[in-house]
Amino acid sequence: SDEEKKVRDQAKRLGVNTEQLLKWARRQGDEDLVRIVERLLRS
C-alpha cells in the first residue's frame, strides 16, 4: 500500500530498520504510524 511504502521510505531516511522505526513511532506517540509499522512487521 501507499502507506507502507511511505513507512519504508521514512525508515530508510532515518537509517533504521522496521523494529527501530516502531520504537521511534511509539516515542513520537504517532498511533497511525505505529499501526502501519506493526502491520508491516506482521506481513
Rank of each mutant, 00 (worst) to 15 (best):
S1T: 11
S1M: 08
S1D: 10
S1Q: 08
S1R: 12
S1K: 11
S1P: 09
S1N: 08
D2F: 12
D2M: 12
D2I: 09
D2W: 11
D2C: 15
D2E: 11
D2S: 10
E3G: 09
E3Y: 13
E3K: 14
E3C: 15
E3H: 11
E3S: 13
E3R: 13
E4T: 11
E4H: 11
E4A: 08
E4Y: 12
E4N: 08
E4P: 10
E4I: 13
E4F: 11
E4V: 09
E4G: 06
E4M: 12
K5A: 08
K5D: 05
K5S: 07
K5H: 05
K6H: 06
K6A: 07
K6N: 06
K6D: 06
K6I: 09
K6M: 11
K6E: 07
K6Y: 13
K6R: 09
K6Q: 08
V7G: 06
V7W: 10
V7F: 07
V7L: 09
V7H: 06
V7I: 10
V7D: 06
R8H: 06
R8W: 12
R8T: 04
R8G: 06
R8Y: 11
R8F: 11
R8K: 05
R8E: 08
R8I: 11
R8C: 14
R8D: 05
D9F: 04
D9I: 10
D9R: 06
D9Y: 03
D9S: 06
D9W: 03
D9K: 07
D9H: 08
D9A: 12
D9G: 08
D9N: 10
D9T: 08
Q10S: 06
Q10A: 13
Q10F: 14
Q10W: 14
Q10C: 15
Q10L: 15
Q10V: 14
Q10D: 03
Q10I: 15
Q10M: 15
Q10R: 08
A11S: 04
A11P: 05
A11T: 04
A11F: 07
A11W: 11
A11E: 06
A11V: 09
A11D: 03
K12E: 09
K12Y: 03
K12T: 03
K12G: 03
K12P: 02
K12L: 07
K12S: 05
K12M: 07
K12N: 05
K12V: 05
R13C: 15
R13D: 02
R13F: 04
R13L: 09
R13T: 03
R13Q: 04
R13A: 06
R13G: 02
R13Y: 03
L14K: 04
L14V: 03
L14N: 02
L14E: 02
L14R: 03
L14W: 07
L14C: 15
L14I: 04
L14F: 06
G15W: 08
G15N: 05
G15P: 03
G15Q: 06
G15F: 11
G15K: 10
G15R: 10
G15T: 03
G15Y: 07
G15L: 09
V16M: 14
V16F: 14
V16K: 06
V16I: 13
V16W: 15
V16C: 15
V16L: 14
V16N: 05
N17F: 14
N17K: 06
N17A: 09
N17Y: 13
N17H: 06
N17E: 03
T18R: 08
T18H: 12
T18V: 15
T18Q: 04
T18A: 13
T18Y: 15
T18P: 12
T18I: 15
T18N: 05
E19M: 07
E19K: 08
E19F: 05
E19G: 03
E19L: 09
E19H: 10
E19W: 08
E19Q: 08
E19C: 15
E19P: 01
E19N: 06
Q20D: 11
Q20R: 04
Q20H: 06
Q20K: 08
Q20E: 13
Q20W: 13
Q20I: 07
Q20N: 07
L21M: 02
L21W: 06
L21V: 01
L21P: 00
L21G: 00
L21H: 00
L21T: 00
L21D: 00
L21A: 00
L21Q: 00
L21F: 07
L22F: 01
L22D: 04
L22S: 00
L22T: 00
L22Q: 01
L22H: 01
L22C: 13
L22I: 03
L22V: 02
L22E: 01
K23S: 11
K23E: 15
K23V: 10
K23G: 05
K23H: 13
K23N: 14
K23R: 12
K23Q: 14
K23F: 07
K23L: 13
K23T: 04
K23M: 11
W24T: 13
W24D: 14
W24H: 08
W24I: 14
W24L: 07
W24S: 11
W24C: 15
W24G: 10
W24A: 10
W24Q: 12
W24N: 12
W24R: 06
A25G: 00
A25V: 07
A25C: 15
A25S: 00
A25P: 03
A25H: 01
A25K: 01
A25L: 14
A25F: 13
R26K: 12
R26S: 07
R26E: 15
R26D: 13
R26N: 03
R26V: 10
R26L: 09
R26Q: 13
R26G: 03
R26F: 06
R26T: 11
R26W: 06
R26Y: 09
R26A: 05
R27P: 01
R27D: 15
R27M: 15
R27G: 14
R27K: 13
R27Q: 15
R27N: 14
R27I: 14
R27H: 12
R27W: 13
Q28H: 12
Q28R: 04
Q28P: 01
Q28F: 14
Q28S: 10
Q28M: 13
Q28A: 07
Q28D: 02
Q28K: 07
G29E: 02
G29S: 04
G29D: 02
G29V: 14
D30K: 11
D30V: 14
D30S: 07
D30W: 15
D30I: 15
D30G: 13
D30E: 04
D30F: 15
D30Q: 08
D30R: 12
E31W: 14
E31K: 12
E31S: 13
E31V: 11
E31N: 08
E31C: 14
E31H: 09
E31D: 10
E31P: 11
E31T: 10
E31Y: 12
D32E: 12
D32H: 10
D32I: 14
D32M: 13
D32N: 13
D32K: 11
D32P: 02
D32L: 14
D32Y: 13
D32V: 12
D32C: 14
D32S: 08
L33Q: 00
L33D: 00
L33C: 12
L33S: 00
L33N: 00
L33V: 02
L33K: 00
V34R: 02
V34D: 01
V34H: 01
V34W: 03
V34L: 08
V34N: 01
V34A: 04
V34E: 02
V34G: 01
V34P: 00
V34K: 01
R35P: 00
R35K: 10
R35W: 07
R35L: 05
R35C: 02
R35N: 04
R35H: 02
R35Y: 04
R35T: 02
R35F: 04
R35A: 05
R35D: 02
R35V: 04
I36S: 02
I36D: 01
I36H: 02
I36V: 04
I36R: 05
I36L: 13
I36A: 09
V37K: 00
V37A: 01
V37P: 00
V37I: 13
V37W: 01
V37T: 01
V37H: 00
E38I: 10
E38G: 01
E38K: 08
E38S: 02
E38H: 01
E38N: 02
E38L: 09
E38W: 02
E38F: 01
R39P: 00
R39T: 04
R39S: 05
R39L: 08
R39G: 05
R39I: 10
R39Y: 06
R39E: 07
R39W: 11
R39Q: 12
L40G: 00
L40R: 01
L40E: 01
L40H: 02
L40Y: 10
L40V: 05
L41E: 01
L41H: 01
L41I: 11
L41T: 01
L41F: 02
L41V: 04
L41S: 01
L41N: 01
R42L: 09
R42N: 06
R42G: 07
R42P: 01
R42E: 07
R42H: 08
R42T: 04
R42V: 08
R42F: 07
R42S: 11
S43E: 12
S43R: 10
S43G: 09
S43M: 13
S43W: 12
S43H: 12
S43Y: 14
S43L: 13
S43A: 10
S43V: 12
